[in-house]
């Protein structure tokens, strides 16, 4: 009998790739689409999502969209181009600076979160415009770590039709990416949402993905109590912080609340699968 890896977060890359490619192929084609659109940032998540989609559907059926803002790190666009070249998909670049600047000229703010959210939501509208124009579904790139910690913009990067990475922790995304034909520097560089110059995920979160993923695994997958996590050696302050992030960001992982009136309210007692009839 085979023995499981001592590291519970270590995945079997070929197995995961097979499941995710079947997921992308089946869930796109059975609802009548044959194409997808992926916003490519130059980071590892979107690179991997594009690579998986190309393996699932064929590179020619995947449109990579690069959406730089004038204050984005120029290296991000260069890396995004490297990704597109490596995966071999058609690509489009849409500079979102004019519409972003137009808005903030009317509504000035230096609040980085507001500005960052606006960028993420602008990119979403570009992707959904491409979706209609190209008859292509928008593939999301949020990983499980981001979704659990709420490290994403509601109706921004969290808006998409389907997501192959949402059940992979960030460190697992890296594992799978190392088995993909992706540029090494995209995998090697420090993770950043690049919503402002010099932004670093791990600096902003206050902990590393390596530590956060192990803690999240024990809290979420293993359903260990906070005290049990403490006994495993995790810092009590980190446990409290991560647990609180999971709780306060639950709203981002749900449809908006609907006030109950009738016998059958959507998503409460009107429950149908997305794949209804497919």
């Amino acid at each position: 009998m085979d023995e499981p890896s001592a590291d519970p977060l270590e995945i079997e890359p070929a197995l995961v790739k097979g499941i995710l490619c079947r997921f992308l192929h089946d869930e796109v084609t059975k609802v009548g689409f044959g194409r997808v659109v992926v916003g490519v940032s130059g980071g590892v998540d979107s690179a991997l999502a594009l690579w998986l989609a190309a393996r699932a559907l064929g590179a020619e059926r995947c449109l990579a969209v690069m959406m730089p803002y004038r204050q984005s790190d120029p290296a991000s666009l260069e890396d995004a181009r490297r990704v597109v070249e490596a995966v071999g998909t058609p690509a489009r670049t849409v500079d979102i600076s004019p519409q972003i600047d137009a808005y903030f000229t009317q509504v000035p703010t230096e609040d980085r979160t507001r500005r960052g959210n606006k960028l993420a939501r602008e990119r979403m509208t570009v992707l959904y415009d491409c979706s209609l124009a190209e008859s292509a579904l928008v593939v999301g790139t949020s990983n499980k770590t981001e979704l659990l910690l709420g490290y994403g913009t509601l109706f921004g990067d969290m808006a998409h039709a389907l997501n192959p990475l949402g059940d992979l922790y960030k460190t697992q995304v890296y594992q799978l990416a190392r088995h993909a034909d992706l540029p090494a520097r995209v995998i090697a560089k420090a993770p950043s949402a690049d919503l402002w110059l010099g932004q670093s995920d791990e600096a902003e979160l206050g902990f590393t993905y390596a530590v956060a993923d192990r803690l999240l695994y024990h809290l979420v997958d293993e359903r260990r109590t906070l005290l049990e996590c403490q006994a495993l050696g995790f810092d009590p302050a980190l446990i409290a912080s991560v647990h609180e992030r999971i709780r306060v960001n639950q709203y981002k992982r749900r449809l908006p609340l609907i006030a109950k009136l009738s016998q059958r309210t959507i998503d409460r007692d009107f429950r149908y699968p997305r794949d209804w009839g497919y």
Binding site: D2, E3, P4, S5, P8, E10, E12, L15, V16, I19
Partner: peptide, 12 residues
Amino acid sequence: PARGVRAGLGGL
């Protein structure tokens, strides 16, 4: 359902 992708199991 297909689930459980931990390395070393030789499969799902």
